[in-house]
Design a protein around this nucleic acid. Structure first.
Lengths: 346, 346
DNA sequence: CGTTAGCACTCACCCACAGAGAGTGCTAAC
DNA sequence: GTTAGCACTCTCTGTGGGTGAGTGCTAACG
């Protein structure tokens, strides 16, 4: 049995119909609504074949057909047509993502919010894994008698700072010397390298006079540095899930929301995905809890290197064509925005 | 008709029972379970009185009684006994909130997470309104040919920074001069004052040679400054609502979650609440959407001045005694943690 | 006169059942 | 190969009786 032209047309019609209606689709509906020039009975025969081939399933004997994961996969890989994003949406995206060129975190949050708004799904965005980022310099600035701000700047422009409480007396010159020494030691090192370096010892002896002050600073330095490795995860449109009838079941909604509520868990799922636009449908997801969902992620670039992710999660029955187009468009815009030499902020 | 001893005892029993069971409580159950030495019939008479006085309601003719908002209010104000927090929970709170003395944002997030975990409700925490905070200094630090980091430090230790793209050539000295000039102009001003000041003009003429550079920096400065006024809102335990049977109704759960999803809306509700421990029950809330919920908020202090909020939201039927004790204990710990002269972080 | 037992009444909830509607699978005719 | 027809299946909806928890009233009790 092969997947001939007619079978494909029928399958496509079933998928499209189901994506919009969420109802199992029957042969009569199909023949009437899609005007394919063949009778319901013929369609039934073809459907039966398609079911045997694993593209359709049957919730129960006398219900219509529902596409299987395999069918969605075929649809996404071959049947789906390119969706043209309306000009006004394109404009909206471009506007929102370029207005504030360099505020990376804010821009990424905006991207997630936009994505959720345009697709009516739950969207998320993750800041880049900053593994390749390098330290540019370290500053120590006094606030008052007991408080000093430690600031670490990376080449990408990312900055991390902490206010420290210092238990010993100090003056501005002392801080400056330490900061310079630290910058000298760490400059150009990647963050992960820097975390491994054990230069505290040598450092302390080099600056005998300051050693007590330095002792106060170093542990905090490492912690602040560690925080630069943090990957932030933003979510938007969590409650969009309620607009899908398949989530009218309270238990399903609960499981879905609880899964997203455990941010660490979800972050891990995202981190482990490949780069580029990746669509995983239902059971293709390795994680049991999202086997009823489809997950679409795409990667954007910062300065051509560091890679962050953005995407949506929702029911398997989603408008794959529309959603992938929008995600692609948004990641393009993000990558452009974050291209360092570009961006002509006034 | 007055609220005699016996009526109070019955009311208290009804409230306690309903808080635990979520079921309307009837006269027979009450007389059996609480062993009050009077018959169901007598209890019925008293209940009828209590209903007339507005403390109880009737979902339908033949159901048990349910406490009204007025009853909860009476309970909270007079009947409720002090709840003793178990030592292990106290220890947990103290540990989690003092480990990392100065990272305010992180500590506040931890507080919300703890609160949600201990109460099994949806918890939130808001960073302080920084209105009274004052600018300490402004720094400009070069990253590369086109990027400069603008950093504004406030007296509280709060820091805001942005990476700027600069369209004109510059050198480190130029940046330093501008930063010094800016610091001179803004130092000691509150953030809101600073935002109102229109010193760009004078500033530009003062530094004729640098004016183009300054022009690049000032708009960003104002934006970065504005961001210092941002109040961050953290939430935790969003899906705890599902553990309450009254939210098994999908529509109720939906309304609840959608309300919290609109963070700006919820933040406004919180900002407008008074300081101290405030309990608002059901209809006492001015906002229609939360008239089925109770909201408990408390304020913590930073450096004795700036005031942030933390609290929980959940069904009217909540363990007010337990929850208020825990919130109070957490705010005490937070305030201690944020007391500037204290905290002996190594 | 407050308290209690008894009793009729009221609902919500559960369950079983019938009928409608949508859809299938099979068969036989075109 | 395609189609019409038909019996069959299964979900969904609405209905009606039974059950149980609870009330409100009345009359009796101490």
């Amino acid at each position: 049995m092969d997947l001939n032209e007619r079978k494909l047309r029928i399958l496509q019609a079933i998928i499209s119909d189901f994506i919009y209606s969420a109802e199992p689709v029957g042969s009569r509906t199909l023949s009437k609504k899609y005007d394919m020039g063949i009778s319901p009975a013929t369609i039934r025969n073809e459907m039966s074949d398609l079911e045997e081939m694993g593209f359709l399933t049957h919730p129960h004997t006398s219900a219509g057909r529902v596409p299987s994961d395999k069918a969605y996969r075929l649809y996404v890989d071959n049947l789906m047509r390119k969706y043209e994003i309306p000009e006004d949406e394109k404009k909206l995206i471009a506007d929102k993502l370029t207005s504030n060129v360099i505020e990376m975190e804010k821009t990424i949050q905006h991207a997630a919010s936009l994505l959720s708004e345009l697709t009516n799904l739950t969207a998320f965005a993750m800041t880049p894994k900053p593994e390749t980022d390098r330290i540019r310099y370290i500053k120590l600035m006094p606030v008052d008698d007991a408080t000093v701000i430690l600031m670490i700047a990376a080449e990408s422009g990312k900055v991390s700072n902490t206010a420290l409480k210092i238990a010993v007396p100090y003056n501005e010159e002392g801080l400056e010397i330490i900061a310079k020494a630290m910058t000298y030691s760490y400059k150009g090192k990647s963050i992960t390298e820097a975390l491994k370096l054990d230069i505290i010892k040598t450092f302390e002896s080099d600056l005998e006079a300051m050693s007590r002050l330095a002792q106060n600073i170093m542990p905090n330095f490492l912690r602040t540095l560690e925080r630069m490795l943090d990957v932030n995860l933003y979510m938007d449109g969590l409650t969009n899930i309620f607009s899908f009838p398949e989530y009218n079941d309270i238990d399903k909604a609960k499981v879905f929301l609880q899964m997203l509520d455990k941010k660490d868990y979800f972050r891990d799922i995202l981190i482990n995905r490949d780069n580029g636009v990746i669509i995983t449908i239902g059971g293709e997801n390795s994680d049991e809890v999202i086997k009823d969902c489809s997950l679409i992620t795409a990667t954007y670039h910062v300065d051509g290197k560091m890679v962050g992710k953005i995407g949506v999660i929702g029911p398997k029955r989603m408008k794959y064509d529309e959603v992938t187009s929008i995600i692609e468009y948004i990641t393009e815009n993000l990558s452009n925005t974050f291209k360092l030499p570009g961006g002509n902020e006034q």
